[in-house]
């Protein structure tokens, strides 16, 4: 599993985010498209692509996509 694929999966899950616009450094909860549907979509993506379920609080605790990736890996 690599961070680049993870970022692509995230971009894919969130509406109106273009491909290759984010990176591991991106503060995903600060992008304009981040809302409750984006949160649900992120949870659904983590479940379908990584078979990991995180809580809302856990997602909130991550600042960058890299941190979210690391947390996801740690739950595998």
């Amino acid at each position: 599993m690599d961070i680049n694929k993870f970022v692509r999966n995230f971009e894919d899950a969130i509406d109106n985010v273009d491909e290759n616009t984010l990176s591991g450094e991106s503060k995903f909860q600060e992008i304009a498209e981040w809302d409750s549907l984006a949160l649900l979509s992120t949870l659904a993506m983590l479940d379908s692509e990584y078979n990991v379920s995180l809580s809302g609080e856990e997602i909130k605790s991550c600042s960058t996509l890299q941190q979210l990736f690391d947390l996801t890996i740690s739950k595998k």
Partner: peptide
């Protein structure tokens, strides 16, 4: 369900 949300939500 609430597990998926933050306390503020």
């Amino acid at each position: 369900i609430n597990q998926q949300l933050s306390k503020e939500m």
